[in-house]
């Protein structure tokens, strides 16, 4: 039996409404990546993580728990679990992330901050006051909960006089650049992905990488936000030869990740399909992603057959070392 759709969405929406995130994450865990980077709190321009990279280890842990529940008698208890979760943070117990995975995803955020510093961008960070963007709740169509949450996110930016927001992933970019303006009257934030900022700043490589990678574009960057050239420009300038899989660029194939919260098995099947395309394009080269959802979903499906990396790892090697 599949996971009960209404109760699963209900738990996620309750968490956003009550705890301001789809899966509860402590402020300490969410901000750990920024330790020692000397990023000021607040500023006219801020790096907004939207907590996606920090949440992935929790989502992965939850997905594993869900896979065990899907098609078992335990699905019958999800309705009860939703009622309990309103009072006691049950999803917090279910989603205990691995430490090494947290470190790996935090490193991506460190990479991005270092790249922006290298490009001469002055930016702040909202630390424990930063909130999740609500991307998953938007996808699931719980618009009333999302609208109230978006207002809270916007109010925090306004409290610190933020005018420009630099995002780190496609889903958060889409939320702040294309969705929030429809939800909030007078919305006036300028939003760019860090990839766009780096290209605009004309960042110069310090080392040539001389390697090949297969490019896996995010469907949100490609088809919602038209971020297609930046990742190619940055890699090509660093001496990286890009190999395109069968479905690429504007017609990139989704990694299946958006199905993960309700249909983990379907998500895995779609990811496997994409992994096969990547392998055909050149498995030996390895592949780059630029979205935490693509990264985790493809990595799980790749089973070590393809080396996957977040694009920020390569960019840091080329532009910061």
């Amino acid at each position: 039996m599949p996971l009960p759709t209404g109760d699963t969405i209900g738990i996620l929406a309750d968490n956003l409404r009550i705890r301001h995130s789809v899966l509860p994450i402590s402020a300490k865990s969410a901000t750990r990546w920024a330790r020692g980077l000397n990023i000021p709190k607040g500023a006219r321009t801020v790096l907004y993580t939207g907590m996606m990279y920090q949440l992935i280890p929790y989502i992965a842990a939850m997905g594993k728990a869900q896979e065990g529940i899907e098609d078992s008698f335990l699905v019958n208890f999800i309705k009860l679990g939703r009622q309990v979760n309103k009072v006691i943070n049950v999803s917090g117990f279910m989603a205990l992330p691995s430490k090494s995975m947290q470190e790996s995803y935090n490193r991506i955020l460190v990479n991005i901050a270092r790249l922006l510093q290298q490009a001469g961008v002055q930016f702040g960070y909202l630390y424990e006051e930063e909130l999740y963007s609500g991307a998953l709740i938007y996808d699931l169509g719980v618009d009333d909960v999302l609208k109230a949450h978006a207002r809270k996110v916007y109010d925090v930016f306004k409290k610190y006089g933020v005018q420009n927001v630099i995002t780190v992933d496609p889903h958060t970019t889409n939320m702040l650049r294309s969705v929030y303006p429809k939800l909030i009257d007078g919305y006036d934030l300028q939003v760019q992905s860090y990839l766009e900022v780096l290209v605009e700043r004309g960042i110069e490589p310090r080392s040539r990488l001389d390697l090949e990678v297969v490019m896996h574009d995010s469907c949100v960057y490609a088809r919602y936000e038209n971020v297609l050239n930046e990742q190619r420009t940055l890699l090509k300038n660093a001496g990286v030869a890009i190999k395109e899989p069968a479905d690429s660029g504007k017609f990139t194939l989704c990694c299946g990740g958006p199905a993960e919260s309700l249909y983990p098995k379907k998500a895995k099947e779609r990811a496997r399909q994409r992994v096969e395309q990547i392998k055909q394009a050149g498995a030996a080269a390895g592949a780059v992603t630029m979205c935490p959802i693509c990264y985790v979903n493809l990595q799980k499906a790749a089973r070590g057959e393809v080396q996957l990396e977040d694009i920020s790892n390569l960019l840091t090697q080329a532009y910061c070392m």
Binding site: T5, C219, R223, K250, F251, L253, P258, A259, Y263, R270
Partner: peptide
């Protein structure tokens, strides 16, 4: 067809075509 509606990835491959 609720399952179909929530299975959609919203990836816009259909829209792009």
């Amino acid at each position: 067809n609720t399952e179909t509606i929530y299975s959609c990835l919203l990836c816009k491959m259909c829209e792009a075509n």
